[in-house]
């Protein structure tokens, strides 16, 4: 498991479009935006539906599960918050329950709780919510939750 992340060194600033999303993480809910008119889902929570342009929007509570679509392994910290965390894996997760008939899908990023050795593209993952050292901020992280066939691992 990567080392601790010092969230006090990042000032997360929720805004008009995102404040409800950050409030939901405190209740351990992983939301994506959903259009009340056509049902389309997307993330990050941009303020209009990019299919029908409606701006009357709701939220869809995802199961917080997905498949690891890609990843990087950060070995050199850029942000002060991550100095103790390296090496850490950032995953790109394709959410299970946001696929639509026209092929549209939702992917989200996040810091994996797993080490590089345990991570492979194609593996199932599940969200876990981390209370940060900032009382008001809960951050979603991701963990490998099972096995799969035809996984792929960067091996150089």
């Amino acid at each position: 498991m990567p080392g601790p992340i010092d969230y006090s060194k990042i000032t997360i600033t929720p805004d008009f479009d995102t404040v409800e999303w950050w409030m939901a993480t405190k209740e351990h809910k992983y939301l994506v935006r959903q259009c009340k008119d056509c049902g389309h889902k997307w993330f990050p929570p941009f303020p209009a539906c990019n299919k029908c342009n409606a701006m009357d929007l709701g939220w869809f509570e995802t199961a917080g599960t997905g498949v690891l679509h890609s990843y990087i392994v950060v070995t050199q910290p850029i942000l002060g918050a991550f100095v103790e965390a390296v090496p850490y894996v950032v995953g790109l997760i394709e959410l299970d329950d946001c696929h639509e008939a026209d092929g549209s899908l939702v992917r989200v990023g996040g810091v994996m709780l797993d080490d590089e050795e345990d991570v492979a593209i194609g593996l199932p993952v599940k969200v876990e919510f981390e209370q940060t050292n900032e009382a008001n901020i809960v951050v979603p992280r991701w963990k490998i939750s099972g096995t799969a066939e035809n996984t792929w691992k960067f091996n150089e």
Binding site: K9, V74, L79, A81, A85, G109
Partner: peptide
């Protein structure tokens, strides 16, 4: 300390 605003709300806290 760095400000995670706009798109960066969903990049910076992931160390990305």
């Amino acid at each position: 300390p760095t400000r995670a605003a706009e798109d960066n709300q969903f990049m910076m806290p992931w160390g990305w």
